[in-house]
């Protein structure tokens, strides 16, 4: 069981293809929070995002044999998740209704209670809020890349494969996005 933690995603999926369900469970462990954070950006609703993430893992389970080594496992899983999220949003007519707040108007991120935190933590949380708002105000093509690169920590090549765009476009969009963020956050980051 300790060894399974050391395996790469690709090795895990091949073990799972041979019937090892513990490999599948490890994939779920590795990706469930990452995917939730990413999909939350599409759905803006935590429960809904969790639903999509669960559906993604169901698809991974049922379609394990369709995975081929031509793509990275992360790219495959994110593609499934993003497609499910976009389909769900388009069915609900919310494809362009992005907002940082949840359905009830509350920010759904786990911001600590400011009354019980130190001044430094309050500033950090405030900065987190501002950064999230600024990312949310970016054009979708920029926001998506910032999320994939800085939040999900994907490589340029992985992002390019996932979004089906050239690596150069990924880099230029990311640079543009960061310049836009720099302008929006100039008061907070000096």
């Amino acid at each position: 069981m300790a060894d399974i933690k050391k395996l790469s995603d690709e090795e895990l999926i091949f073990k799972f293809q041979k019937g090892d369900e513990s490999a599948y469970n490890e994939i779920v462990e590795r990706y469930k929070n990452k995917l939730l954070n990413h999909i939350f950006y599409y759905m803006k609703d935590r429960e809904w995002a969790e639903d999509i993430v669960q559906d993604t893992f169901v698809r991974v389970y049922l379609n394990k044999d369709k995975y081929k080594e031509i793509a990275k496992v992360s790219t495959w899983i994110y593609t499934i998740a993003i497609n499910l999220a976009k389909t769900a949003l388009s069915r609900n007519g919310k494809m362009n209704a992005f907002s940082i707040t949840g359905k009830d108007g509350e920010n759904d991120y786990e911001i600590k209670d400011k009354h019980t935190t130190t001044d430094g933590e309050v500033l950090k949380n405030e900065l987190s809020d501002v950064i999230m708002s600024s990312i949310d105000e970016l054009e979708e093509k920029f926001r998506e890349i910032v999320m994939l690169r800085d939040v999900d920590e994907m490589s340029y090549e992985e992002i390019a494969a996932l979004l089906k765009i050239p690596t150069g476009t990924v880099k230029s969009r990311l640079n543009r996005a960061r310049l836009n963020l720099r302008d929006a956050l100039s008061e907070y980051i000096k």
């Binding site: 469930k32 929070n33 939730l36 954070n37 939350f40 935590r46 969790e50 993430v53 759904d108 991120y109 786990e110 911001i111 600590k112 950090k124 949380n125 900065l127 987190s128 950064i131 999230m132 990312i135 910032v146 800085d150 939040v151 920590e153 960061r178 310049l179 963020l181 720099r182 956050l185 100039s186 980051i189 000096k190």
Partner: peptide, 19 residues
């Protein structure tokens, strides 16, 4: 430096976890 700081701050934003 400001661009790098933005990148590092984004990496440090609070993340949500599954229920």
């Amino acid at each position: 430096e400001s661009l790098r700081k933005i990148s590092s701050e984004i990496k440090n934003i609070d993340r949500i976890k599954v229920s």
